[in-house]
Design a protein around this nucleic acid. Sequence first.
DNA 1: CCCGATTCTCGTCAACTTGACGACAAAGCG
DNA 2: CGCTTTGTCGTCAAGTTGACGAGAATCGGG
Lengths: 263, 263
Amino acid sequence: MNRADETTRPGDGDPAVPPDAALLPVTVDVVALTVRDDALQVLLVERGVDPFRGALALPGGFVLPGEGLTAAATRELAEEAGVAPPGHLEQLGTYGPLGRDPRGPVLSVAHLLLAPDFGVVRPGSDAGAVAWHPATEVLDGATLAFDHARILADGVERARSKLEYSPLATAFCGPEFTVAELRRVYEAVWGVRLDPRNFSRKATGTPGLLEETGRTTSGGAGRPAALYRAAAGGSAGRRDTGVEDGPAVVRAVIDPPLLRPRA
Amino acid sequence: MNRADETTRPGDGDPAVPPDAALLPVTVDVVALTVRDDALQVLLVERGVDPFRGALALPGGFVLPGEGLTAAATRELAEEAGVAPPGHLEQLGTYGPLGRDPRGPVLSVAHLLLAPDFGVVRPGSDAGAVAWHPATEVLDGATLAFDHARILADGVERARSKLEYSPLATAFCGPEFTVAELRRVYEAVWGVRLDPRNFSRKATGTPGLLEETGRTTSGGAGRPAALYRAAAGGSAGRRDTGVEDGPAVVRAVIDPPLLRPRA
DNA sequence: CCCGATTCTCGTCAACTTGACGACAAAGCG
DNA sequence: CGCTTTGTCGTCAAGTTGACGAGAATCGGG
């Protein structure tokens, strides 16, 4: 862009955006992941309008004037899924604007939500059914609207990778959880089995990851388990400190990292 | 894409984007990093126009109609720095649109370029001086235009973190390089000293990172060093395979990772 | 009330990786 | 010809991982 082209509108104190700049509609799409029935599941909506009417899609929609990216993402989740979910929301990446929407050039800022299994979910105003779907099934048999299959694949890979070095696995759990619950999160997201003894050693031995509550489970089968909560500041990135919209900055806590078993 | 589903406004080739969607100007900004004089340096331009006339800024500018994100980033680099640089270009994240540009809401898709030290750089047609600046100095004494200080900080942190597990350090080197050159990249980016013997063991012992050329350096002081090139597919992410614009997907190669020394 | 099943937790041990460092190899320089 | 510089190979203690044994604490059924 030739910045010499930038002009000042008469009667306007601020310089104006150059007239040859593209003005693009922007959507936010959310890859909302949870762990349900020991499987990684993704929240999908059935589109109620064209294009791709009737197809499955990620929840999302257009950014409105005066709105920030994170605000748009949470608003769309509320509108389409009827939830103001807890958990960790971070920016995933930006797609487009060319060749991904039949309506023309549209920029899409994808987000990633890692959340505990929040109960479903009322159908949104302009969408059909809203439901959790096992991520592996969708990734394999994927026929999602737009380029949502690719966005979902990127989101799942991001989640898998972040579990290795960040405390974000705790975002899938409730406020208090056992080491075994945390392990089942890893097992579901990675699709592997982990040794409970070694996992417990690593989880409890990592400073800044878990905080003891002093309480234990009761009522279930087997020996009661100690209850923990996520350590303070554990999953706190820059997003929790301000209103700015930008990519995720999450502190690395698991050091050395807990690597996925390699085939 | 199923164009049969499109509903077309009469007399309008752009169907069905809802009328209440914001139409945003979008910029691309590039955090271009290299290693020069054993230091991590960032390419900055002096702005020639308001806003922030005379201030230092990341190279970048507005996306034009019909243009993709990556295309806009490379075009801006060519226009403002006079280079069609080699190296690795990936998306960093998207900032805004609120509160970051005095001209109004502007979305900025930041990119990260890791490149060998390409010779400077002609002043762009519409910008003032273009030059490399030591990253640490800029990060400390930072008064950059817009929110570019924050974007730079995010870009440097991304680069530092990616060196741990990806082969991207080779993007800072020329087509052939020695293990010592690669080590100096790590030392410059991380700002630490690494043991040459241990680094050599890790670099040469990591499958898929280096490829022997059979040749050696000559002429310099000391014993000649073996020349390597980046292993095929090493720094190749999805971006190299298609025209789609999206976030970076870089294969993890250094496994277990080469972690920064922790204080 | 005892017994097995289940689940959580602690301990042990070999294999591997890291960090620190000694030693040698191969060039240039006086 | 030594001396310096730089790259490469080895060695070794310390720490981490992966595999697994064994005990602790609870539930449910005979």
